[in-house]
């Protein structure tokens, strides 16, 4: 029971990191990033290949993931400069699929669809409970740092400028904000955070494969951020934990519904995620932690 809960808290923390990424790109800057799973994958592969085959220590692998994510995010952002809204969403979705197809087919680089198993964790896995607790501490600390940094950034003048870009980029440009640069910065930082989450996932579970990085992950994180409130790092993080708790709780709920077969229970679980989202959007459009208006200094 305890190890199950610890495991869920680690996975929740990784989802919360992804939610931080989406909060910055989508919630604050208004860049709909449907390619989150792709950046998650880039980070996972960058760190896994370097540490497993390159013999690099795990902390360096995490740094490499951050760099890889930022570079990929920058490239995607500058190549889609003129796109906003739906168009950017489609392009990023396509990008994530491209990453997955490349990961499946460039076998020399990524191990192909076999994936990479036995990724080092930087500590012995046979420590049992201790391994999971230390992992939980590491993931939670990293999440805390990202959360703190993001809160500071969002509250800073830079964050205010990002929100101006989100609301109307022409007005922001007229007001002298360098829109392109702001968007590229925000997107690159957001992608670096997603990549960090990917690297942590790989090191914790010891196995990554292209099939993990399906659009489903992106959708889940969108759900989490919508539930928590997309403009606030706190809301996004709590939304992610709620999402994991909800996904797991539906397992037990489906078991006590009488007279349903396993496959019906699985379908009910998926339906309940949709229903919860509809209810949330009906009664709390701006999420559990709506964005606060910043008061102008007196």
């Amino acid at each position: 029971m305890v190890s199950y809960l610890i495991f869920l808290l680690v996975v929740g923390g990784i989802y919360a990191l992804l939610a931080q990424s989406l909060c910055l790109a989508w919630g604050v800057t208004g860049l709909v990033n449907l390619g989150l799973a792709g950046f998650f994958a880039i980070g996972a592969y960058a760190s896994a290949t370097l540490t497993k085959w390159g013999g690099v220590p795990v902390p360096l692998g995490l740094v490499a993931a951050l760099v890889a994510g930022a570079v990929a995010g920058f490239v995607v952002c500058v190549s889609t400069l003129r796109l906003r809204d739906d168009y950017l969403a489609i392009v990023t979705l396509g990008f994530a699929e491209a990453v997955r197809v490349i990961a499946s087919n460039e076998i020399w680089l990524t191990g192909g669809t076999d994936g990479i198993s036995g990724i080092p964790a930087g500590m012995p896995r046979d420590w049992g409970q201790r391994f999971h607790i230390i992992s939980l501490v590491i993931v939670t600390i990293l999440l805390g740092l990202v959360w703190l940094a993001l809160r500071r950034l969002v509250a800073s003048p830079w964050g205010r400028a990002l929100r101006a870009v989100r609301e109307d980029q022409i007005v922001a440009a007229v007001a002298g904000k360098r829109v392109t640069r702001l968007k590229a910065e925000a997107f690159a930082i957001a992608c670096a955070i997603a990549a960090l989450a990917g690297a942590l996932y790989g090191h914790y579970t010891s196995y990554i494969a292209p099939e993990i990085f399906q659009p489903l992950i992106t959708i889940y994180v969108f759900l989490a951020v919508t539930a928590g409130g997309n403009g606030r790092p706190t809301g996004a993080a709590i939304g992610a934990y709620i999402l994991i708790a909800f996904l797991e709780a539906t397992r037990f709920a489906a078991e006590i519904v009488p007279g349903v077969s396993a496959v019906q229970a699985a379908a009910l679980r998926e339906a309940s995620v949709g229903i919860a989202l509809i209810l949330l959007l009906r009664f709390r459009q701006r999420g559990l932690f709506p964005e606060l208006n910043q008061k102008a200094p007196a």
Binding site: V2, I212, L247, E248, A265, R269
Partner: peptide, 23 residues
Amino acid sequence: LTSEDDQTNPEAGLRAARKLIDI
């Protein structure tokens, strides 16, 4: 018997397996 769904996805499968083993 407990029947869980792996959603044909290693991430979801891993969570389901954790539940089967620990709970």
